[in-house]
């Protein structure tokens, strides 16, 4: 079984300490909300967990049945939606979906693309260039890309950023549909989103 261990993690940018001694473990079905004010290091913690930043101290281990996984092995099983992650403005929504699926090793059919777009409420807009999308539509497309990956580790940084009411509903549907089989990590400072996860990890104290 997949498992994530965050062990005594600390990050420092020069003299500035972002956080220290962060500890938690998650298995599929479990969820955690990383909460804290702006600048408390929520996004930094997510990057450290993904392995795209080097911790000052401590470590992050993804393991499967006790076997530690290499970056490329758990990367395939991980999806992220974040304000720091963007999609290609010079490609259409469909081209984005097709590209990300292909470089990840999957051929995705047109029906699958259509159903993904419908799931995030972007039906009929798949042929438009992403540069012409509104920020809410872009956020929806990010969910479609994350869903296409069929990931067991779902990381959401500010999950409902830029979304309207129907978008927020679509997101909570997605989260509920994935909750049982996924490790869910949500970084947020919205009070009502704390409830999306069972546990909390408070930063910035």
């Amino acid at each position: 079984m997949l498992k994530l261990d965050v062990l005594n993690l600390a990050k420092r940018f020069g003299a500035r300490k972002v956080f220290e001694s962060i500890n938690f473990s998650l298995t599929p079905g479990e969820s955690i909300a990383i909460v804290g004010p702006n600048g408390s290091g929520k996004s930094t913690l997510l990057r450290l967990i993904i392995g795209l930043n080097i911790p000052t101290k401590g470590k992050v281990v993804f393991s499967d049945d006790g076997e530690p996984l290499e970056f490329d092995a758990y990367r395939r099983r991980l999806a992220l939606v974040s304000p720091y992650l963007s999609l290609y403005g010079s490609l259409t929504g469909k081209e984005n979906l097709r590209f990300f699926a292909k470089v990840n090793g999957d051929n995705i059919s047109d029906q699958e693309i259509d159903s993904l777009l419908a799931q995030v409420g972007l039906q009929g807009r798949g042929e438009d260039f992403v540069s012409a999308y509104s920020s809410g539509m872009l956020q929806r497309l990010k969910y479609a890309v994350a869903l296409a990956k069929n990931a067991e580790i779902l990381m959401l940084d500010e999950p409902s950023a830029n979304l309207d009411e129907s978008g927020k509903e679509a997101v909570s549907d997605i989260i509920e549909s994935r909750r049982k089989n996924s490790i869910l990590i949500i970084a947020t400072n919205e009070k009502e989103e704390y409830a999306l996860a069972e546990r909390q990890c408070q930063l910035g104290q």
């Binding site: 420092r12 940018f13 020069g14 930043n53 080097i54 911790p55 000052t56």
Partner: peptide, 9 residues
């Protein structure tokens, strides 16, 4: 490079 860990790598 402002981040020391990144700078080192």
């Amino acid at each position: 490079l402002p981040d020391p860990d990144q700078r080192a790598t």
